[in-house]
Design a protein around this nucleic acid. Sequence first.
DNA 1: CGGTAGTGTTCGCTCATTCTAACATAAGAA
DNA 2: TTCTTATGTTAGAATGAGCGAACACTACCG
Lengths: 223, 223
Amino acid sequence: MSDHPLQSKSVENFLKAVYALQEGDDRVATNTLSDVLNKTAPSVTDMAQRLESAGLVDYQKYRGVVLTEAGREIALKVIRRHRLIELYLVRELGYQLHEVHGEAEDLEHAVSDRFVEAIAKKLGDPVIDPHGDPIPSADGTLLYRHLMPLSELEPGRGGVIAQLKTSDPEMLQHMLDRGFPLQGRVEVIARDPFQGPTMALVNGIQRVVGYHVAECILIETSP
Amino acid sequence: MSDHPLQSKSVENFLKAVYALQEGDDRVATNTLSDVLNKTAPSVTDMAQRLESAGLVDYQKYRGVVLTEAGREIALKVIRRHRLIELYLVRELGYQLHEVHGEAEDLEHAVSDRFVEAIAKKLGDPVIDPHGDPIPSADGTLLYRHLMPLSELEPGRGGVIAQLKTSDPEMLQHMLDRGFPLQGRVEVIARDPFQGPTMALVNGIQRVVGYHVAECILIETSP
DNA sequence: CGGTAGTGTTCGCTCATTCTAACATAAGAA
DNA sequence: TTCTTATGTTAGAATGAGCGAACACTACCG
């Protein structure tokens, strides 16, 4: 079942990265992938060519890659695994939010479909992972929410913290340290210009956070 | 932490196999390993040489391998992982006994120490896995029990089924089908000669099982 | 003691994944 | 448009993991 011909850790990570970087129909540059995957550019080009001939991506010399339908399916499956595992680690095994990414990164390539569906069931078929990312359903459907970065919310506007968009454990920890937990009610008070810090009320307490971090705090806005 | 230089799936499986085959100080033949691991003989020799120079086994040309202390440590760690995972799958995720081996076989190479200790804790630091095998403790200690194969128990003698010593899901299922569950109280009634079937009472019900299967049903004997 | 059957090793290759160094192309500045 | 810098690609090599075919060693039989 999960023994497709080309299904190694590197392939899965490659497809996952392409999926993440490819908004809409934009082609993803090999060098961008090389950064994200921490591989040298030639390695990426090579993988792109191999996956092209496996029918998982459409690769064109000097023009980057896009996922084919087959590639997208695998990417979504891997993402489903990843996010379910993260949630499972938090809910069942007492992991802290900042610890789960690394662990899931390895496990997602080792678990069977049987395992994934067992934990999904145990968790009650969740659609949101502990970072607030949507969990693709088994058939590849994603919950859609219109979220805005905290950094773009006008003073006076507010909502609920819906997603902490970073896989860097340090940044995640920083967000929590600064008092921006998932599900927190937030209202922007002010923002300094020139990409300065944002001041906000979170659950009634005044908080401050830098611009680049605020970009990664996504808000489900309320009127 | 778990990023030792040479720690791949193949290495871990190799060490695990050597551990399992090496009773006492006997050297393990490369061809025996080649059978167990489902690899060709040259592959095994090759691995033996690589692990020799990594200091994990003592390999001597034409004389097979034995684990070094370092190799034994890794083997025990992998076995601990494997057995804890099996128990976890049964207890927490509703797996059937015959399903766990395969899944654990993959997961054991992907989980972190953090994960292993989290499930160990959740399970209450168990010392026996769902097949009745002892689970090595974190520092490598194994519960010792003196067990006898059902096939060697004289008629009239009995005890408790302590271990189902097979990793073949089919055989495992067969044992359960024939009415020999772990923890069952068993008393041998009779045995046919020439490696014939054993007749026994299990939890008061009369059961029959073939010789080769009875060899794999281990009994904690009572007087 | 010598020869053969069986066991174990070496050789030479392949594939996947990665790297560095050298080359090629595209795109914007002049 | 030409040139330069950015960005990408090929070439060539290494490593880990395997394989089949050919060779080497052991051990036992006579």
